[in-house]
Design a protein around this nucleic acid. Structure first.
Lengths: 153, 153
DNA sequence: CATTTAGTTCAATTTTTATTGAACTAAATG
DNA sequence: CATTTAGTTCAATAAAAATTGAACTAAATG
């Protein structure tokens, strides 16, 4: 880990915090991203990030749960290794979009609870419908990506 | 405000917290969503939510800054009123998508900092390219919505 | 079966973030 | 121009979240 990589790891921590995860989750993600070896053991991570076992244990679970990290075990080795989960872009996006649907439901419920209809009702209705529609539209977007990505990358 | 509306306001607080804003921001949003009058004064909000002036002041600013709330002033009335900003769905979405681009940049930078290329590099490259592409694709998605929304709603 | 290793759990602590409340500013009113 | 009203600011406090660390479990090794 050189200086730039260490500062990258911290930056990743900040961004993950902005995305609603913990700073430590971002650090582990960042470490696994830039690390030379694509797999790292529990203790390699702990040492690289100078954190406690409890913190690494809890946070790797968080990341595994979020689908971003994959635990790997090898025969004849009692350690567990951790690596970035090379999940398909579609799956990643769908997970993120979930919050949109929660927001859509919130708006729609708000509209129902209003005592009278007004221009706010109309707006709640459209935004809610939009985000709900968007959830279904994602498949088409991902399909389009699959078709164009070879030209772009 | 009946019981259901008050519990809706709290629910909105929780969801806004999940979306990275404060609980109070969600409460104010929720209040403005279900309130009978589509505009509310500073003190009406403060009383309805039983919060301090400081908190209302800071949080209304947060919401105005995020583009979700609009301050309204009336001639001959020194109060400011607050209402949900009926911003277009596209604008709302674009604001949310910004985090995707930040994430894309993080991945791309991570790839650059790696000492060697491996399968993680490949993944970082694709995911980053995808989120970057997605940012540009949004306009097409919004345009499609404008065309289909009358059939759906 | 005693020992080492890998990781978990959770109460205590630290750190961060949200909220209050009191003193303040600025504008309007009498 | 003194007073009221509307809202702001910010230091102090409260509340919530992250992190530690020590005691623990479970599995593998000798």
């Amino acid at each position: 880990m050189d200086k730039e990589q260490l500062s990258y790891i911290e930056e990743s921590g900040i961004i993950f915090e902005q995305m609603g995860m913990t700073r430590m989750a971002g650090r582990i993600f960042g470490f696994l991203a830039v690390s030379d070896k694509s797999e790292a053991s529990f203790d390699e991570i702990r040492q690289a990030l100078d954190a406690s076992k409890g913190s690494i244990s809890g946070t790797t679970k968080q990341l595994i749960n979020a689908g971003l990290v994959q635990p790997v075990s090898l025969p004849g080795d009692r350690k567990t290794y951790y690596r970035l989960n090379k999940v398909a872009v579609g799956q990643l996006l769908r997970a993120r979009i979930q919050l949109f649907n929660i927001f859509a439901d919130l708006l729609s419920k708000g509209r129902e609870l209003k005592k009278s209809e007004d221009d706010v009702s109309e707006w709640l209705k459209e935004v809610s419908a939009f985000y709900t529609w968007l959830g279904g539209e994602i498949n088409a977007v991902i399909e389009k990506w699959e078709n164009v990505k070879d030209d772009i990358m």
